[in-house]
């Protein structure tokens, strides 16, 4: 079972050196414990481009698909047997990166 853990933040700016160091320690532990799938930090929403090619016209729009005060600044994907494990990992991740996080399960494969 995989969980997306989105890091929620409300301003530009990268992690401080202390935060980055704590994230490294956390990531090492997640990898050692076998929960690691993928993770990454994202550039600010202002750098986003929205593409709509549903009718083949490939319209590009500058900026994010929705303007919000808080946005996803990065994410982890964890492998975890159940939500309790995912929540514990997410809580430690929130502490390490010093930001709020949201846990969301991936859809189970279709039956």
């Amino acid at each position: 079972m995989q969980y997306l853990v989105s890091v929620i933040f409300d301003s530009d700016g990268r992690a401080t050196p202390e935060e980055a160091a704590a994230i490294d320690v956390f990531n090492d532990r997640v990898q050692a414990d076998g929960h690691w799938v993928f993770a990454g930090g994202l550039a600010s929403p202002a750098t986003a481009t929205v593409i709509d090619n549903r009718d083949g016209a490939s319209v590009f729009t500058d900026g994010p698909f929705v303007e919000t005060k808080e946005y996803v600044a990065g994410f982890w994907v964890f492998e975890a047997p159940d939500l309790d494990v995912a929540l514990r990992l997410a809580a430690d991740g929130s502490k390490a990166c010093n930001r709020k996080v949201e846990v969301r399960p991936f859809l189970a494969p279709p039956e």
Binding site: M1, P81, L83
Partner: peptide, 14 residues
């Protein structure tokens, strides 16, 4: 079901 909230008695520490 979707988030797989476990069906169990929590671990001693929780």
């Amino acid at each position: 079901k979707a988030a797989r909230i476990p069906y169990r008695v929590p671990a001693a520490e929780d």
